[in-house]
């Protein structure tokens, strides 16, 4: 018991000394042309995080930035990690996901000279915290229209990773498009509750196929791999998300929504270097090239391709009224 107390005391003393020894507040360093990217998952997830990582590579290659990346960052480490990057003189700190909102709010206030960019979030402060959102719904509308034109059974499957507002908005708009292009068709949806659970994606897709769906729209990163797995060898059409997913099921592939980090980060960092980033919320979509459709698969007839391209054009021209995400 005594020995335990002694050891605890020594430990506490040692810690205090260490803490005291370095408690001179670190000064904000001169900002170099450095950008850091913080991810909650791995850089090679084939979706959300990989897109952002490719954006980071783009500003490294094209704008000559020195870059650093942190993968698999735990929520508890966000604030500390941002502070660390800020202290190391990083000019841009890019955080990939809504879950970084609180951390950016805290650290952006502590480091006014550092520019923060939240991808897929809304945390902006009119000063150094900027946020970027994909324009929700337009991609959903586009693929909804294509699915509506393609379906023969008039049943379209929708598989989402997480029931979050942005994905919900895409589904709402897909349903809206289906009503316009094929009023007889209906959408059957499923949310698997994971970005990564391939088995669940397959399960959900098989269930929808059993219900008669002949087109499945999959919006769920790695989950899409499972969906592609399920449609392979059938006549069910596959619409993917996030990247060009032709390779997952070439014989079933219709198209996929392609979200690219490169145009976004090149645009935002370019604005930043020009002194134009002022802590705003940027909504980016088809017009900015933040999202596009992948080249159509071989099963898509020419006339539908033409009609689909017209839909894309109408979306870019703001001719279509989209349903906004809930809560925004």
């Amino acid at each position: 018991m005594k020995r335990f107390a002694v050891v605890t005391l020594v430990l506490a003393l040692a810690l205090t000394t260490l803490v005291a020894g370095c408690s001179t507040k670190p000064k904000e360093k001169v900002l170099a042309k450095k950008a850091a990217l913080i991810l909650s998952g791995p850089v090679n997830d084939g979706g959300w995080n990989q897109n952002a990582y490719e954006g980071l590579q783009a500003i490294k290659d094209k704008d000559g930035f020195e870059v650093a990346v942190s993968e698999n960052v735990a929520q508890a480490d966000q604030v500390n990690l941002m502070r660390n990057y800020a202290n190391q003189g990083f000019k841009y700190i890019i955080a990939n996901g809504f879950e970084y909102g609180d951390a950016i709010k805290t650290v952006a206030a502590e480091f006014p000279k550092v520019t923060f960019i939240q991808l897929g979030g809304i945390e902006h402060n009119g000063a150094n915290a900027n946020a970027m959102l994909f324009k929700s719904g337009e991609a959903g509308y586009a693929v909804g229209a294509i699915a509506a034109m393609m379906t023969k059974t008039n049943k379209i499957g929708w598989i989402g990773a997480m029931d979050i507002p942005s994905i919900r908005a895409d589904e709402d708009n897909a349903i809206a498009a289906v009503k316009v292009f094929n009023p007889k068709a209906k959408v059957i949806d499923a949310y698997v509750g994971s970005w990564t659970d391939i088995a669940k994606g397959k399960e959900a897709a098989l269930a929808q196929i059993a219900q008669g769906c002949d087109i499945i729209i999959a919006n769920g990163d790695a989950v899409n791999h499972g969906v592609a797995e399920a449609v392979k060898g059938t006549k069910v059409g596959f619409i993917g998300w996030s990247r060009d997913q032709t390779a997952l099921a070439p014989d079933n592939f219709i198209t996929s929504v392609v979200q690219s980090g490169a145009p976004i980060l090149l645009d935002l960092v370019g604005k930043g270097e020009a002194g134009q980033l002022k802590g705003d919320l940027y909504v980016m979509g088809l017009v900015e090239g933040a999202q596009t459709l992948a080249p159509y698969g071989k099963i898509v007839p020419q006339d539908i391709q033409t009609k689909a391209n017209q839909v894309l054009k109408d979306l870019k021209d703001n001719k279509i009224t989209l349903i906004p995400p809930k809560g925004s």
């Binding site: 810690l15 803490v19 370095c22 408690s23 670190p26 508890a76 480490d77 500390n80 660390n84 202290n87």
Partner: peptide
């Protein structure tokens, strides 16, 4: 240095250790 290199990291380490 990431573990104990400066105040921020050291306190980060200790904070991580709490849970």
């Amino acid at each position: 240095s990431g573990a104990v290199g400066n105040l921020g990291q050291l306190t980060g380490t200790i904070t991580n250790a709490i849970p």
